[in-house]
Amino acid sequence: MPTATSPVHTPQTDGPTSAVDPRALRRCFGRFTTGVTVISYHVGDQIRGATVNSFTSVSLDPPLVLVSLARSTQACGAVADLPFAINVLRADQPDVAMQFAGRTRPGLRIAWDLPAGEDEPPTLADAVAVFRCRPWRRYDGGDHVLQLGEITGFEDRAGEPLVFGDGRFVSTGLPLLDGPMVFSLDGPPSPGWVGAAQRFHAMPEH
């Protein structure tokens, strides 16, 4: 089964390719309620991550998942060649989502499960589900890249997942935190939101 990634064509354009209003389209995308994930990986001895809500299962045989990553983010380039994990956040983890979307939470403690070998990615200890992946294929997605990962391991844990829709985090129908309507939290900054194009480092655990 092939595991090497394929090159991704970068479209060359001189300007907007559509008359669609991006803000209106973003709001419309926001009507689709999703879970919230953090993509995590190692760069050297540092743990990096980005908050992403454009995630979906793809296949059971082979076991594949897909995340849509903005081309401008460091995560997009990193996971082309590195093992990565998709961590499904728990309902009480909106601060973790914000941390890896660029809105640092001073004093936030993040617990990691660190891999024994170099071929496994770091994972969030408190996520409700974890998918460990190796890069499988990449496809052109306009200003995003569609990254498929082949699942090498997974964990299903107790707890309610964090949910995002209509521009806010919700849990069992109750608003937790207002925010801008976005399609992918890993995208470039929008008004009132800092995107994950910045560099992120693991928060020290006390």
Rank of each mutant, 00 (worst) to 15 (best):
Pro62Cys: 07
Val65Asp: 04
Leu66Ile: 04
Ser68Phe: 00
Ser68Gln: 07
Ala70Arg: 10
Thr73Trp: 06
Thr73Phe: 07
Thr73Val: 09
Gln74Lys: 11
Ala75Phe: 02
Ala75Trp: 01
Ala78Met: 08
Ala78Trp: 07
Val79Asn: 11
Val79Trp: 06
Asp81Thr: 14
Asp81Ile: 02
Pro83Val: 00
Ala85Trp: 05
Ala85Ile: 03
Ile86Asp: 03
Leu89Glu: 02
Ala91Tyr: 04
Ala91Phe: 00
Asp92Val: 03
Pro94Arg: 05
Pro94Thr: 03
Ala97Met: 07
Ala97His: 05
Phe100Gln: 05
Ala101Phe: 00
Ala101Lys: 09
Gly102Ile: 03
Arg103Val: 01
Thr104Glu: 15
Arg105Phe: 00
Arg105Glu: 13
Arg105Cys: 12
Gly107Lys: 12
Leu108Arg: 08
Leu108Asp: 04
Ala111Phe: 02
Ala111Asp: 13
Ala111Gln: 10
Trp112Cys: 05
Asp113Met: 05
Asp113Tyr: 01
Leu114Ala: 10
Ala116Arg: 14
Gly117Phe: 05
Glu118Ser: 15
Glu120Ile: 00
Pro121Phe: 09
Pro122Gly: 03
Pro122Thr: 03
Thr123His: 07
Leu124Tyr: 05
Ala125Cys: 05
Val128Gln: 09
Cys133Met: 11
Cys133Gln: 09
Pro135Glu: 06
Pro135Ala: 07
Arg137His: 14
Arg138Gln: 15
Arg138Lys: 08
Asp140Phe: 01
Gly141His: 09
Gly141Trp: 05
Gly141Ser: 12
Gly142Val: 07
Asp143His: 04
Asp143Cys: 01
Val145Trp: 13
Gln147Ser: 14
Gln147Lys: 04
Leu148Trp: 01
Gly149Phe: 02
Glu150Met: 12
Glu150Pro: 00
Ile151Leu: 09
Thr152Lys: 12
Thr152Gln: 09
Gly153His: 13
Gly153Ser: 15
Glu155Ala: 13
Arg157Phe: 06
Arg157Ala: 11
Ala158Gln: 12
Gly159Gln: 08
Gly159Cys: 04
Glu160His: 12
Glu160Gly: 04
Glu160Ala: 14
Leu162Gln: 09
Val163Ser: 14
Val163Arg: 13
Val163His: 08
Phe164Met: 13
Gly165Pro: 11
Asp166Leu: 15
Gly167Trp: 02
Gly167Ala: 06
Arg168Pro: 00
Arg168Asn: 00
Val170Trp: 03
Ser171Lys: 02
Thr172Phe: 02
Leu174Ile: 13
Pro175Cys: 08
Leu176Ala: 03
Gly179Gln: 02
Gly179Tyr: 08
Pro180Arg: 10
Pro180Gly: 09
Met181Leu: 08
Ser184His: 10
Ser184Leu: 09
Ser184Gly: 15
Gly187Ala: 15
Ser190Glu: 14
Ser190Gly: 05
Pro191Asn: 08
Gly192Trp: 02
Gly192Glu: 10
Trp193Thr: 03
Gly195Thr: 04
Gly195Phe: 04
Ala196Ser: 15
Ala197Asp: 14
